[in-house]
Design a protein around this nucleic acid. Structure first.
Lengths: 148, 148
DNA sequence: CCTGACATTCAAGTTAACTTTAAGGTCAAG
DNA sequence: CTTGACCTTAAAGTTAACTTGAATGTCAGG
């Protein structure tokens, strides 16, 4: 199978597949006489797995550390541990998101529920004072460091 | 107030504050005779708001579009709309995370609950087959495009 | 007067995960 | 024999949000 067909079957682009090879996530495959890469059918499965793991929040580095050379020879304990830790990561993120959401809803409430008898500027001051006095959270965005 | 003091009070670094000015998130402030930036007390509030918004998942671009020149003159409707949309974004992410988590737990189950009478390789094939046959999700990581 | 803690600017580096571009081979079909 | 769809490589570009580095200026204290 040439790289274009593999790309079609796996849903990844050729450039992405070559990139994975370059960074050592995929081992270099055989070449035909003309230099074209020639993939075994198994490659579709491997790429599918990579995409799946990415979808679950694993970074390419993490995936590289877990993907066995032989698809039937997983490092059971490392894999189970990584999966469990990833679940914990997700739970952390869920908790953080819940707090962000609650916070946002609270702010929406504050700005919508302005008493009729005070003007916008006064209300703005009131909202601002409350907002900055409350909890200062860690940025949700900082989670990108952990692949979310 | 010089930039160092503002940095201390706001918890941001001086380089970050200069960066915000460079990209137009903060308007340029007055300079002392020696060229040093001189900030009004209000700047602490503004930086606090920026950090707060970032914590809630807003990108700097979004924040720039929402932050009024005058802190007491918010564009009420734009702000309320943006907050509401951000809550919706968070809900989308929550749903996605829930699915990822369920998926991971399912995989952990599959690899742990291997029947005693089949070997690792066979189990690996069984797990792989199920895994790749199921749903292929969008990567959680793709949410970074929306600031999470 | 010197030292050290500040301040300034501009350019370049960082991270992840790719894509894009450029310049060029290969090959089946018409 | 030429077109067009593929394939190859290496290098550079992308995005967000900063940081780091280099070269230099300012200023209060001892």
């Amino acid at each position: 199978m040439k790289i274009g067909e593999l790309a079609n079957r796996s849903g990844l682009t050729p450039s992405r597949i070559r990139f994975y090879e370059r960074i050592g996530l995929l081992k270099a495959v055989d070449r035909k006489a003309n230099g074209y890469r020639s993939y075994p059918a198994e490659a579709v499965t491997i790429l599918g797995l990579i995409a799946l793991a990415q979808g679950a929040g694993f970074s390419l580095d993490e995936i590289r550390a877990l993907l066995p050379a032989d698809l039937e020879h997983w490092e059971h304990d490392a894999l189970a541990g990584a999966l469990t830790r990833k679940v914990a990561d997700i739970e952390t993120l869920q908790a953080r998101l819940a707090r962000s959401k609650a916070h946002l809803l609270h702010v929406i409430d504050e700005i919508e529920a302005r008493p009729d008898d005070i003007d916008c500027a006064t209300n703005a001051r009131r909202v601002l004072t409350r907002l900055l006095g409350e909890d200062a959270e860690m940025p949700v965005a900082s989670l990108r460091a952990k692949q979310f």
